[in-house]
Amino acid sequence: METLDSGRWSDLPVDILRSLFERLSFMDFYKAKMVCSNWYLCSKQTLGPKGGSSPLLLLSPEEGGCRLYNPEEDRVYVPRRDFSGCRFLGNSGKWFLVADSQSNLYIVDVFSDEKIDLPRLELVSCEGCVHSLEPLGDGDFNEALVGNSAGIRKSAEKLRGVVWVDEETRDYVVVCRFDRCDFIRFCKKGDDRYSEIQTRVDLSGKDGFEDVIEQPMFTWYKPFPSAEEEERMRAFKVISESYNIAVVTRSGAVLLVHNYTYESTTTFEKHRMFGVYKRQLKDLDPETYKPCLVEVDSLGDEALFLDLGITVPADATFGIEPNSIYFTRDDRFRLIPLSFLDICVYNLATKSIKRFPTLSSKFKLKDAQWFIPS
């Protein structure tokens, strides 16, 4: 073993540092690696922190900024960067897509504070794009056809986005759009502006995009309520419901998640229920493209993170509960009236729901998002 020649923390032997790093939680690991250059280099030689796959919550208090919450520890961490006036649109692991108060976009590692700047939204998009954005102040934009001054005001609060980041290479893809808009913008590493894609296209062709505006849309239809749901709906008042067609399982299956909130007409207590469905393509009508929906009774040994649109392997070691849905709110990807923040974990088998009341008592939250650091 190496000997310690001085009392400085930066001079701790490498084998001691490795042993220390391997015992830290994920968030403490990222704090420790920023102590000095020696600790940072040693962290690169460590297998990884304990709990690197535990689900965490990024909290956005009404007063501004953000906090990181570990449910397993019931502990709150404060990031290094000041995120006042920012909105968190989406994430890829520990990398979050952030819009500042003027709707400038960037990607940031919420642990190490490493930042990736993105092109400005108001830059005219690539050749072939037909829409432009003009900033109006307060993060809002005027959206118009290229060359025209008249357009439609787009509110910053209606900007939606998703991001993917490769942890090793830092390659990334960002997709963003304003709610109720017929096109999306995207950029990737190396781009200096956004490209534009119409949302009414068929992406399944091998030779590019096919315009399907005049063709029947390949849609999902509202599932019929089960007998249990009908019974509940008779006894309670449904105050909100939503459908998410953004969940891809580990096997590649696409799921529809139906969730609704109902309220007791006597106690006014709110409850939430979820239903998971898949398409039965063999019964698809070639004229109307109407699919048949089949309810999925169980997710098995997987957990569904609705904020991320994916399922992940359940793991008791990291606190990931099997056959469960991790949820925060309905309008993550599109504007839904009467949506409200409801941080919870829903068990499909028992129909039970777990919430986190300590968060409400400690913070006044305007938003929260589940994420898995790695």
Rank of each mutant, 00 (worst) to 15 (best):
F21S: 06
F21W: 01
F21N: 02
E22D: 11
E22H: 02
R23S: 12
R23K: 13
R23H: 03
L24C: 10
L24H: 01
L24A: 09
S25E: 02
M27G: 08
D28G: 09
F29P: 03
F29K: 02
F29C: 09
Y30S: 04
Y30V: 05
K31W: 04
A32V: 03
A32C: 12
K33Q: 09
M34E: 07
M34W: 07
M34G: 06
C36M: 06
N38I: 06
N38W: 00
W39S: 11
Y40K: 01
L41G: 02
L41W: 00
S43M: 07
K44I: 13
K44E: 12
Q45H: 05
L47T: 02
G48K: 02
P49H: 01
P49V: 09
K50V: 14
K50Y: 00
G52V: 06
G52E: 04
S53G: 11
S53E: 09
S53D: 08
S54I: 06
S54T: 13
S54K: 04
L56E: 00
L56I: 07
L57H: 05
L59P: 08
P61G: 10
P61T: 05
P61Q: 11
E62S: 14
E62H: 07
E63M: 14
G65P: 13
C66D: 08
L68N: 06
Y69D: 04
N70W: 00
D74K: 15
R75Y: 03
V76L: 12
V76Q: 06
V76T: 15
Y77Q: 12
Y77H: 14
